[in-house]
Write a protein that binds this DNA or RNA. Sequence first.
RNA 1: GCCGAGGUAGCCAAGGUGGUCACGGCGCGUGUCUGAAAAACACGAGAUGCGGGUUCAACUCCUGCCCUCGGCA
Length: 332
Amino acid sequence: MNRKLLIIAGPTATGKTSLALTLANKFNGELISADSRQVYIGMDLGTGKDLPKNLKPQTSKLMWRGKPIRYYSVGGVRIWGYDLVKPDEVFNAAFFEEIAWMVIKNTWRQGKLPVLVGGTGLYLKAVTEPLITLHIPPDKKLRRSVEQESVTELQHRLINLDKEHFNRMNNSDKQNKRRLVRAIELARNNTKVNKTLAGGEKETLLAETSILKIGLKAPKPLLDKRIGERVDVRIKQGAKNEVRQLIKQGYTFDLISMSGMGYRHWKPYFEGTTTREEVARRWKFDEHDYARRQLTWFKKDQAVRWYDITETNWQKRVVGLVREWYSKLIIR
RNA sequence: GCCGAGGUAGCCAAGGUGGUCACGGCGCGUGUCUGAAAAACACGAGAUGCGGGUUCAACUCCUGCCCUCGGCA
């Protein structure tokens, strides 16, 4: 077996998608966007889907939850991972893992190279690493019943159920209600570990797959500048109207999909308590912080081959690296 | 020029009968992360306009200067 999977990671606004498209063209690839926000239908400008205007999605024969998975075709290259669910539907890392692997296998079947590109660290990890607890589903009833409880109450609840788990958590997570609830959820379901990919298929596939991870980065001041410009462009292109449309369609600001940047920021604006300039400002600040957290996440992955996009010829060097990897049978 | 208000971190901003060199928010920096992850959470750095006086002790009181805002001229 000689299966290959190319991964392009890095913070927002470094040009991941454009690099991925270039590489896909050169190496007969298909893109899979690993982005927790671009999965929503109708959320385009705010999430920064880099698509030509008026490009319509196409339906594939791959079925997920009874519906065909959509993809876009840009200059002959397919982009998957966009428009997977409606804004009020549930989506998460486990779902992404399922879909991503369906697409990856489909791409291989055609003799092509899957290029997983995105900034959502957990989603990339969900595809490339065996994550056991990822397959324990959320317990809605439990979540609803404890959502009002304080951090201390939740801590006690977890300590009673699984003291070891609590002790294993770090200080930050111990004070994070969302993580505590999830831990409680796991403690109550620790026998129900089931796998979405039957029979440990994912592990087998991973074992015979050669993965190359490329990371893009830029000095923070430059990155912040690019982020600022990108936000301005998206606003100019009508990010506000996109939100207005979503509201008109009945989607509300309390949805998870609407908690993303470029959406939640408009809430005070529509309520008349802030200006468009202020929205832009806040949006940019949050993007800065997001980029920082993405970097924090990816930094820990020793396998990532980093490229600074301010260095000359970085693209040529990336292409060179990919070519070498692509032509060899297996690289370890 | 006169009257009034005020000058506390990059920005907004609390404070007190003078007494561990000062609340908080934003921003900034660092980190956490296994079904919400563009979420959620943790940690950190940073300040009393300038000078003089009173006092054991002043950011807090007095005073001169500089600056800002509002009103009057």
